[in-house]
Design a protein around this nucleic acid. Structure first.
Lengths: 241, 241
DNA sequence: GGTTTTGGTGAACGGTGTTTACAAGAGTTC
DNA sequence: GAACTCTTGTAAACACCGTTCACCAAAACC
């Protein structure tokens, strides 16, 4: 039941091969090895032919970023689904651990997507996972005291905007949330959690801890515990409802 | 009273110009613009001549990293010296703010030094600043309860090693410290602080916050407050001694 | 069957890192 | 001062890069 013509199918197939070759080059030989000629060589065609599919080398790299985000999102969703506890705390933990594991297994991709002085964000393919998770977290109706006045007033405007983004992300999933569940205080802690999660993972991937860490995993787990506790989960996770 | 011969002086001068040109290219036109031919063009020589000074393009980039670290360290030392309060909390704050300011003002340098999947650490030129600061922090003899059993036992070995590094860094500055001042609990919080500091700065430099932050500085200051409070400083900094 | 669209080629331009052979000058030694 | 060595540059070349252009064959369309 493919609506596509023969030609469209061939084109889509070639495009898939291009992305695949680009990805393999990035993984195996680094960012600088992702070159038009190398990709073309892999497909058995010549470099100018690639211009029938992408406007420039840069455009191809951007597409590559999007693919990476989508793939990572799929992995994280799988990690999320693999957790059968039904407890939000465990789910958060699973996704955060999944993010770390993915980053360590794909350092080149991580560097390209998360640590390039690129314009905005590669794609919100990525943010969707975290937003969905935040959605579940909110929907779980955890009642934790995070007074709004804990956060400086200058931040209220930005946090309120993020609050709206989160609300929208949640409502897309068909869940409505009482206002007081997702107050600015909690939002603030969510942002702080992202800072710590990203900070630890990036430091580990790039080897920028101030000393040689022989086994970073327990340190990560320890940070995760404190993170969850800050947001409002108890360590032994008896906090669901 | 330069011991150097005329030739050595000339050589040193040329090398200085090479570094300077490389730096300018990085800052003004990005990492990919730091090319041997461009540098040579700037000096009015040809590219192969650079091989008399550096083994390869990669070696030159490594040298560039070291230079960047050294310059940043100088800036942070200046920030540290500019604080005349004499209070350690203010000094920590000054250096952390200085680090953020430097990173935002030098995104290309930051990306090169702190976010490249490079081997170990570019140079410990960089770590020295933080170590010295940590040294002062320790020397200030803040007595805050951070029980060792707060941190998981698996981390003890690594943290103890870092503890030794810190001790050495302090003793170089001619200060001896009682053992109980720098216990593993405090060490752990210092590492966690580095995670948060790095995480926030990197996210800001790379624009990877999950929403548009109109004015990130108060958010940074807020994080700093909580960081210092976690380590054991009171917010209004009456904690010195 | 003729026409248009599509997806490929090969040649070329200017750019890159790197190697090699060679030359000119500075420093040293007799 | 002549002879020698060491240093620092050059020019040419190689292989690779992104990109453009003219061209071409086959597929799709009418």
């Amino acid at each position: 039941m493919t609506e596509a013509t023969r030609r469209e199918r061939l084109r889509a197939e070639t495009e898939r091969e291009i992305r695949q070759a680009a990805r393999a080059l990035l993984v195996e030989r680094g960012r600088d090895a992702v070159t038009l000629r190398a990709i073309a060589r892999e497909l058995g065609i010549t470099a100018p032919a690639l211009y029938r599919y992408y406007d420039s080398h840069d455009a191809l790299l951007r597409q590559l970023c999007d693919d990476i985000c989508a793939d990572m999102a799929a992995v994280l969703y799988a990690d999320l689904a693999a957790d059968t506890s039904g407890q939000v705390g465990c789910q958060v933990r699973a996704v955060c651990r999944g993010f770390r594991r993915w980053a360590l297994a794909h350092p080149q991709e991580f560097a390209l997507v998360f640590a390039s002085p690129r314009d905005p964000l590669g794609a919100d393919q990525f943010g969707a996972v975290f937003l969905q998770l935040a959605g579940r977290l909110i929907a779980s109706n955890l009642v934790v005291k995070h007074a709004d006045d804990e956060v400086p007033e200058v931040l209220h405007e930005d946090l309120a905007r993020f609050q709206q983004v989160l609300m929208d992300a949640v409502s897309v999933h068909g869940v409505t949330v009482e206002d007081d569940v997702l107050n600015l205080g909690k939002i603030y802690h969510v942002v702080q959690s992202w800072v710590r999660l990203y900070g630890h993972v990036a430091l580990e991937v790039f080897g920028r801890f101030p000393f040689a860490v022989s086994n970073p995993e327990p340190m990560f787990d320890s940070m995760l515990d404190q993170m969850l506790s800050d947001i409002g989960f108890q360590e032994d996770d008896s906090a669901v409802r």
